[in-house]
Write a protein that binds this DNA or RNA. Sequence first.
DNA 1: CGCATTTGACCAGCGC
DNA 2: GCGCTGGTCAAATGCG
Length: 314
Amino acid sequence: MDSNCVDSFLSLDLNSDPSMQINELLPRLGTDFTDPGRDISAKEEADGLEAELTRVSKENEKLNMMLDVMYGGLQSLQSQVIDLMGKTSSETGSNASKKRKDEGNDNRNVINGNISYTNHMECSSSEDSCKKQCSLSKKVSNIQIRTNPSDTALVVKDGYQWRKYGQKVTRDNPSPRAYFKCSFAPACPVKKKVQRSAKDRSILIATYEGEHIHPHPAQTDAPSGSSHGGARGPLIPVRLMDPTPKLDLNQLGLGQDADMHSGLNHTAPEFHRCLVEQMAASLAKDPGFTTTLAAAISGRIHRPPSAENLLERM
DNA sequence: CGCATTTGACCAGCGC
DNA sequence: GCGCTGGTCAAATGCG
């Protein structure tokens, strides 16, 4: 198998539509194997590989369809969550001193045990005034990230540039809480608090406040990664100690930039496209996936990972 | 030398 | 009013 083909495949620009790129790769692979110097068996092998790649391409289309289904389910779940949050807020009423207490509550949903998010407006007044203030107050969102418990670093690599300005040990949690400000843009008001969960020290809880006034560095910065700022980690997807690929929910608009209450347009094609790109990037950055894919292309295995298996990897 | 991080001090909000 | 707590500031320190 021509290693250049594998290299060219693995170095595909993930910012483009992955299915389109696979389709573009197929004729490229075909020309490689029509070399007149090859014998008949080589051509048969090439035909087999082309058929294999066609099947992979179809599976990629199948994945996109499954993504549509998953996306529909996501929207349904989000609407249910919004309904539930509305009900619970009306049931529990308001509490002026809830702000501090709420920070210790587990009002977050764990998604596959890797990353979860919660998004809400910071409200501390009565229900009526809360609705008014919600449109004025800053956004607050939480995400949970599972990391190696032995890793004591309070770093959440979300692609943004953060400057640490403080650290405190809070009363209800022995783990210190780190305070960060967004340093990508001088006037960016976004702040982030990172603290390990008191119950499970392998879980990092990041609380974001405010909205970025600049685009995500991944969209504006060339991936040189040579400048200062240790907080600038791998841009997308977020990959920490857990070997399974993860989606960068923030990048998807589900993190601090998401606002379930303000009706973020999750049906927008940009969002859908971003979702597809994130999943493709996650797959491509998964060493297991790339290895398996390379093996499939090189014909070392007869059955490529099915769409279901690929989803299980995520 | 410039930048980020660390860490003790200070301030503000809240409960009693 | 006082004490507790979380959040922020800023000087000191470390690192490339």
